[in-house]
Design a protein around this nucleic acid. Structure first.
Lengths: 222, 222
DNA sequence: ACCTGAACACCGTTCAAGT
DNA sequence: ACCTGAACACCGTTCAAGT
């Protein structure tokens, strides 16, 4: 399992470094991503990861500064696999493609949304679609400040929608009880039952596209 | 500190229940809210709460089913203190007032946003502004499905903006490094430095109002 | 340079016992 | 009915020691 046969022309003094002995940073990060996608970001622990890698928890610290450092790197790597720029020239298609890509990579890795909600890991995701969006918005004539505000509106919306979809925050939810607590009218109950994202008929794709079009329509109007 | 002098006409057999001895559910929830607002939702623990209440951790379990139950109740109570319906008749003012109220109660309790991100606690907040918003949207002619989608766009946006503001996710952020990681052009750096929410010149209030108006413009157009 | 083992200071929660 | 104390099965991380 530890043999490495590649590039046989190297001297044996280098073989100590090159031998793919157990751990290395990349392997740790990849195992983290797999584990987070499988069990969720909240269930992830260094001890469980170590056990899955067949190693002592402390062995991880040779390749990772802390749990937080590891999770940041995992989120970074996931986000880096997305392409936000598709060479579109139309500003609206440019932005749509950008945030569809962000949404898709988060859905492909179901642990991502939750991962980014853990202490300040989101920021790296924040820069990903920024350049192409600001470029597109300058075409519509938005000044830099408004463009940045519009950009954060789009990011907020997209990440929250993914979060709803992948975490299913409505699984623990009793509409009737919530409506009673908030003193809402009973007429809501029926509507909520059939239209709420909790129900199986809720179409997350179409809900996302609808919200995205609302924001883009708003930008177009201004 | 434990004496209760109200309603002196009661018999002494009831005094055992009425004596405000140490704990009760309301006191536990109130202490939780204060602690979460002071130290943050992530730092909150039952053991720390018990110690602050001068009691054994296990004493809490007489008034609370679990940590999650306690956090849900704390979030519920905070949200219940908000008034979403201000008796407006204009649909746009109706929605604006509703989400400004949601945002304000979350900012008044800085731990709220993070609290709601912890396992499925958000849902109760989700119902709060729902009724008034759906009512307003029906005036514009949106069908129930689109109205629900627009509503979740507004909720997503509002809660995420509060989250950015209260948690300050950009404090741990190095724009230059992030831009390098994401292969972004260097021309972004300068723009980011002065326009990003990290900078002190970022106006969260105006950014919120701008994003809100984008979404409402989008609704108005449709 | 990389890994182990024991230890520290924490968690949420269960259970048996006290009053 | 309410509280305590000991215990269980976990955490992230430090430190000293091995190779």
């Amino acid at each position: 399992m530890t043999r490495s046969r590649s590039e046989p022309g190297k001297t044996s003094t280098q073989s100590a470094e090159r031998r793919t002995r157990s751990l290395n940073r990349q392997r740790v990060i990849e195992a983290t991503i797999a584990m987070v996608d499988r069990d969720g970001a909240d269930a992830f622990s260094l001890r469980a990861l170590a056990s899955e890698l067949g190693v002592t928890p402390m062995a991880l610290y040779n390749h990772v500064a802390s749990k937080r450092d590891l999770l940041v790197s995992a989120a970074d790597r996931i986000l880096a696999s997305a392409k936000f720029d598709h060479g579109e020239t139309n500003w609206r298609l440019q932005i749509e493609g950008c945030f569809r890509a962000l949404r898709e990579v988060c859905i492909r890795h179901p642990g991502t949304a939750r991962l980014m909600e853990i202490e300040g890991i989101a920021p790296s995701a924040v820069f990903g679609p920024m350049e192409v969006t600001l470029d597109a918005l300058s075409k519509v004539g938005l000044n830099p400040t408004d463009a940045m505000r519009a950009y954060f509106t789009l990011v907020s919306f997209t990440l929250a929608q993914v979060s709803y979809q992948t975490r299913g925050p409505f699984s623990h939810l009793d509409p009737a009880e919530a409506i009673r607590k908030q003193n809402l009218s009973a007429s809501l109950v029926e509507l909520v039952r059939e239209a709420l994202p909790a129900s199986s008929s809720w179409d997350f794709d179409r809900a996302f596209e609808y919200g995205l079009s609302l924001i883009l329509d708003g930008i177009e109007k201004s």
